[in-house]
Design a protein around this nucleic acid. Sequence first.
DNA 1: CGGAAATCTGACCGTTGTCAAGTTCCGCCC
DNA 2: GGGCGGAACTTGACAACGGTCAGATTTCCG
Lengths: 212, 212
Amino acid sequence: MSVTPKARGRHHHGDLRRALLDAVAEIVLEAGPERVSLRECARRAGVSHSAAAPHFGDKRGLLTAFATEKSERLRAAMEQAVADLPPGADARAVLAATGHGYLGFARDNPAHFRLMFRTDLIDTADPAWRHAAQAARDPLDRAMAALVPAADAAALRARLAFAWAAVHGFCTLRAELPRNELWHPAPRGAEVAEDLVALVVRACAAPERSAD
Amino acid sequence: MSVTPKARGRHHHGDLRRALLDAVAEIVLEAGPERVSLRECARRAGVSHSAAAPHFGDKRGLLTAFATEKSERLRAAMEQAVADLPPGADARAVLAATGHGYLGFARDNPAHFRLMFRTDLIDTADPAWRHAAQAARDPLDRAMAALVPAADAAALRARLAFAWAAVHGFCTLRAELPRNELWHPAPRGAEVAEDLVALVVRACAAPERSAD
DNA sequence: CGGAAATCTGACCGTTGTCAAGTTCCGCCC
DNA sequence: GGGCGGAACTTGACAACGGTCAGATTTCCG
């Protein structure tokens, strides 16, 4: 009931689109993305079924719009973490902060984070989504470019994939294997996340070669 | 139709359980786990609806059993990769092979891999699943223990999470963001995977500290 | 041959997406 | 200021699908 069933201003409802997206957030939080449906969202927004269809045609459209919003928030979280650094922070600190921004967002919004990567539920051809998803990569791209010599394109590419994969994988595992001790030696979340970022940054900052 | 609709031996069907699990594999491959249902599986196995219920009570039971099987195959893939090493391989090579086993399994079975981590669709309390999921961690645990000094428990823990997260994250991203160029500079899959494993192994083998 | 387990048939209920037709309300224009 | 067109929303109905249950039926084993 927390979606503020109605409001006036225009027509019957103030901003139905907004209310529906908030409903999506609620449902995803409580019951997972599977249970999102046009009808259920309409129910929570206090409008009748079939009111959602004109706005988002489809359940997929609904989730795509939602994921787009959240992608922008993920990007904002990373940029905020970088902005919060003390002035004069070096490239390693910027990369670490970017990672912590990503980790923090996923920790605070595990359900939304999960959904963002459920590409089977999202219309990956949607321009707005594509743009937001692309933009969410910018902070990492910038941080890494500042750390890796511009010459070495291959090293840059490998480190981008590596850093993203490591942080993303940690978030995924943490969100997906919740509270059961499969995460073997009880990771003390925050501490392990700290160590993980440190390992990533060190590996990315290391010079290219090393005798194997 | 490739599930071999019937067979004789006992009762009406030779091994319905097997046939149903094969049907799950088919459906997951073609249409994703969402479309798995008792009815659809029964249909493909050539039996009538409600024939599946006695074996697996539930759609969740069905997917849990399937994920359990696949977890065992993931473990086997890693152990095989290690076994294929030339004799006398050192601890770093073992760790790298373990990672490549994981990567290879996820590359060859992206749909199954995805499902294995859809804990919302799986009964995570099921003993068989828990055992298989635990066991799937063994190869990494062994490889890492051989590489990290036994004394340093914290370093071991951090490196386990790190290595698993990096490789798992890469597999997830590759499976989840398919064929669209969001994966920014077109990763040339195999090559990037190779570099990624190298970075992980190097980071794990590195001595504990490093200035600032 | 008899009993038990596996499977089939048929039905019920709840959920969802979709459509067609009606209703309410906004803003515009004379 | 009063109607008027149209957009936003409502109502009601339909078909499809999934899970579940009761009871009949087949098959196996002893």
